[in-house]
Design a protein around this nucleic acid. Structure first.
Length: 547
RNA sequence: GCCCUCGUAGCUCAGCGGAUAGAGCACCUGGUUGCGGACUAGGGGGUCGCAGGUUCGAGUCCUGCCGAGGGCACCA
């Protein structure tokens, strides 16, 4: 079904063109769509537009006069009950109750797909996120990227894309050698030998315990093995743990893409050769440089070190060329603030390779700051994503990670997150869902059936507000996708829960003295339940029937 | 020094160029002999960092400055 905003927009534009056809206002090219806002005061109706104010520049009439002309030609049947004009030139519309009720019926018949938008079907999207290297446990920062990427993927699915969730990891280069060496030291220490880690080795406790595990399984039989063996063992173990952590958050990747394969299949060489051939890469001081300035960027960068090893930029470019080869219509990189500055260089590199890189978008997120008395007991100031999930639960982690705009710093309040009371916004929303389930259960036991309900009479302000909020899900999804901003969905679901709780206080659902109203309200809350469940599902948060 | 993000109520944050800037928490006062009180109605609390500019209209766009975070490697 078309977006609520689009339907209204078309009606208003029909009013404009009607007025134009009669010569009441001059003719000009109509805009694609108009901007609607939810007015703050009830007497201004359900939606408002400042279109007359904007048109006043174009056509030399006062905004109020224009608004009145548009209003005269506004189609009044159907979704709009009536309209008003207010100073200094707003056009306000009020939705008809019958139309709202008909939409409740529609929501119930369409079920969980009621808000899906068929906008990008047959298009493929790829979302790359987390992309941690297999050198240690995932951090809470990875958690934010993970939840953002996964939820954005869900949203893309809701607008029709076929989505590939992808995790890119760097298992090549000197850092992996250091990982192997570090594990070997831990292994030897676990055998009682006196060896020390170097300063630039991986100091984490997880390698100590892995070293001990290796002693248990292999005794001292690995002593003659080189760092490569230990690297493989560490990589396997750490990767498995990373994905186990992600699975706890309901995140399952479709593709794991490793950097090493780009060396094996010649992609890296191909990039260097082509760039050199096109004079977009050159040799200097024994290294190969990418001519970023030539490409319109800031500073030239080394892509192959004088040691012959590529820097991370080169495989990144090759990897993104590979994405282009896979013909995705949309490619999104979810990156932390610490990695985002490399993105423009990669895009320039991809363009230099002859691809249309404007299909590639970046979703940047700021860091997570953990706040609270109850930090992890395990290790001082460092708390891993795994610890955090164990501490507060997956639903809370996902919800909290999505509460803020991604470009804002996120303060994760562990004390609030652990609080299983009304203070916690996750429970507030889930409680609304559970409450509805409880009423529906009670209704079912009392013998109410939903089949033949005539929906009407839902005219209480709380009912209207609830219906209106419910129907905004598709607009919310649309906007969240357009702006790559999943947090709009959190705002939506909190608003919907809030308007349900208000409705619950104002309007009793089960009322044996008014069966028609009971049926109508039962259907209303069934529809609201669908909306809550769908929004929570997109967020990757559970919608419990009891709590 | 240069680049990116952020700066809104005591705290954490929403706010799609429009009307009297909102929510949660905290604080104060009410509400259920009702379908789940994990609820709800109301109150106090604001120089939207500062200064210019664009606009009929700026928290929102532009410029400069201040502050916080991140980046500016032959690390990723």
């Amino acid at each position: 079904m078309p977006l609520l905003s689009k339907q209204l927009s078309e009606l208003v534009l029909a009013g404009v063109s009607g007025a134009q056809a009669d010569g009441v206002i001059p003719s000009f090219e109509l805009p694609e769509g108009i901007h609607l806002t939810r007015p703050k005061r009830r007497e201004w109706g359900d939606y408002s537009t400042a279109l007359p104010l904007q048109l006043a520049k174009l056509i030399e009439l006062s905004p109020v006069v224009i608004a009145n002309h548009i209003q005269d030609y506004l189609p009044k049947r159907g979704m709009i009950a009536h309209s008003t004009v207010s100073e200094p030139g707003f056009l306000n519309v009020t939705l008809s109750s019958d139309w709202l009720c008909s939409q409740v019926t529609r929501v119930i018949s369409e079920g969980s797909s009621f808000a899906d938008i068929d906008l990008y079907s047959n298009q493929n999207a790829q979302v790359e996120f987390v992309s941690a290297n297999p050198t240690g446990p995932l951090t809470v920062g990875h958690g934010r990227g993970g939840v953002l990427g996964d939820t954005l993927s869900n949203l893309l699915g809701a607008v029709g894309y076929r989505v590939t969730r992808e995790f890119y990891y760097n298992n090549a280069g000197q850092q992996m050698r250091k990982l192997g060496e570090s594990l070997k030291v831990r292994y030897m220490q676990s055998l009682g030998m006196t060896v020390q880690l170097l300063e630039d080795h991986y100091q984490g406790e997880y390698l100590t315990s892995l070293g001990a595990d290796l002693v248990e399984h292999y005794s001292d039989s690995l002593l003659d093995e080189g760092w490569e063996t230990f690297k493989d063992l560490a990589e396997e173990d750490i990767s498995a743990k990373q994905h186990r952590t992600l699975r706890k958050l309901n995140i399952v990747m479709d593709v794991l893409y490793n950097e090493h394969s780009l060396y094996e299949d010649g992609s890296i060489d191909k990039v260097v050769n082509k760039l050199r051939h096109d004079k977009l890469a050159y040799d200097k001081d024994g290294a190969v440089w990418l001519a970023v300035k030539e490409l319109g960027g800031s500073d030239d960068r080394v892509i192959v070190k004088s040691t012959g090893e590529p820097t991370y930029r080169l495989p990144d470019i090759a990897y993104h060329c590979n994405k282009m080869e896979r013909n995705f219509d949309l490619v999104i990189d979810v990156l932390g603030a610490d990695h985002k500055d490399a993105f423009p260089d990669v895009i320039l590199g991809v363009k230099a390779m002859g691809y249309k890189a404007d299909r590639i978008k970046m979703l940047m997120h700021q860091f997570v700051n953990i706040k609270g008395e109850r930090m992890s007991k395990r290790s001082g100031n460092f708390i891993s994503l795994d610890d955090l999930i164990d501490e507060v639960g997956a639903d809370v982690v996902r919800f909290f990670m999505l509460m803020r705009a991604s470009e804002s710093h996120l303060e994760f309040d562990i004390d609030l997150a652990r609080d299983q009371s009304d203070k916690n916004p996750v429970y507030y929303v889930q409680y609304a869902h559970a409450r509805i389930c409880s009423i529906l259960e009670k209704a079912s036991l009392a013998g109410y059936s939903f089949m033949d309900a005539q929906l009407g009479g839902l005219v209480h302000p709380s009912e209207r507000m609830l219906m209106r909020n419910l129907l905004e899900l598709s607009d919310t999804i649309d906007r969240a996708v357009r702006e790559m901003a999943p947090h709009y969905l959190v705002t939506y679901v909190r608003d919907l829960a809030s308007s349900f709780h208000a409705f619950y206080g104002d309007c009793r659902v089960l009322d044996d003295d008014d069966i028609p109203l009971t049926f109508a309200r039962l259907n209303l809350i069934r529809a609201v339940r669908i909306g809550l469940a769908r929004a929570l599902d997109l967020l990757g948060v559970s919608a419990p029937e009891t709590m």
